[in-house]
């Protein structure tokens, strides 16, 4: 492949990987604390709507982005009330959250369909953008992509080197032992659920503020589910999540470019590729022993000590 085909392909890879990256990081954050959240798709949908609506009414894209995160946090809060407050089943609550979130966003978003709001546009980073090959791929993107470069590193640092990060992981690995050491695991699970929801919401907001500048029903179109699978692929490691998200973004971007270049492969097959990849990733991760990286208490509710 010549550079003039490869560079746009890789730049598109980064862009279509970014919403999935935010969502995957959110899911990792949540699951590290021991709470399984299958509601990513619904949380993203609400985040996308909130982001667009706030950007439309206030005219500020950054407010919109923040609102997307906060709306995601609110949805995460619902999951928290069910699973941490009432010890509800985490799988069922997550699935319900997906149905609720997508439905709610479609319902509330109807008046906003067909409107256009201001959104993020690509900004070249000084100096970096001029690096040959890498510059046009990584540093001629919109500001939210630059934000997404920082989050995985920050999250990795948080888990590894901060006290709160270690305690959050303890809540996900062995809440009883953590309790014996005087850590209120439930509080750290709340942190996981709320912050996780925040990042998932950001992923949604990316879709309506940067990827496109409009709102549509089912804008997330399955990206939340891909994020759920990518958590396993990433072995719950924020840095590996980057590779996973870009892999998916790459396949999505690649299949369209293959079509545009005039291939004879049926389009149905090409459009199936990202989902085939999802399945292969799950098989691969299980085979590679990804399950040993699973937070040990994932999906297990903390019984109140009485």
């Amino acid at each position: 492949m010549t550079p003039d085909i490869l560079i746009p392909l890789l730049a598109a890879t980064v862009q279509s990987g970014t919403p999935i990256l935010f969502a995957t990081l959110g899911a990792i954050f949540c699951e590290k604390s021991g709470v399984l959240n299958l509601g990513v798709e619904g949380i993203m949908a609400v985040g996308a709507l909130a982001g667009f609506a706030v950007s439309y009414y206030t005219g500020s894209v950054w407010f919109g982005f923040l609102a997307g995160g906060l709306a995601g946090m609110l949805m995460g809060g619902v999951h928290g009330v069910v699973c941490l407050g009432f010890l509800g089943n985490q799988v069922v609550s997550g699935l319900a959250l997906t149905i609720l979130g997508v439905g709610l966003a479609n319902y509330l978003g109807t008046p906003l369909i067909g409107l256009s709001a201001s959104g993020f546009v690509p900004v070249d980073l000084p100096l970096l953008a001029r690096i040959p090959f890498l510059g046009p791929i990584f540093f001629q993107q919109d500001p939210l992509v630059y934000v997404s470069y920082g989050v995985p590193v920050g999250m990795w640092y948080f888990f590894k080197y901060t006290r709160a990060g270690l305690r959050l992981r303890a809540a996900g690995e062995n809440p009883d032992a953590a309790l014996a050491a005087g850590i209120h695991s439930v509080n750290y699970r709340w942190l996981g659920v709320l912050c996780g929801g925040f990042f998932m919401g950001l992923g949604g907001a990316y879709l309506s503020l940067a990827y496109t500048h409009m709102w549509a029903n089912h804008l997330t179109s399955g990206r939340g589910w891909i994020a759920v699978a990518l958590v396993i692929f990433a072995f719950w490691n924020p840095l590996r999540a980057v590779a996973g998200a870009y892999l998916f973004g790459g396949v999505m971007a690649f299949q369209f470019r293959l079509q545009a270049s005039g291939t004879h492969i049926p389009s149905s097959f090409l459009l199936m590729l990202p989902y085939v990849l999802t399945l292969s990733v799950l098989v691969f991760s299980s085979w590679k022993g990804g399950s040993s990286a699973t937070p040990q208490a994932l999906g297990v509710n903390i019984e109140p000590a009485d």
Binding site: Y211, L219, L271
Partner: peptide
Amino acid sequence: VRVVWTKTWYDPAIEKEGAKSLLDVGA
């Protein structure tokens, strides 16, 4: 005329991506 199929009627994100891929091949 170069054609890209999206298999969607209303999905701004995917349809925009499809258009971009056509622009990348010189449309």
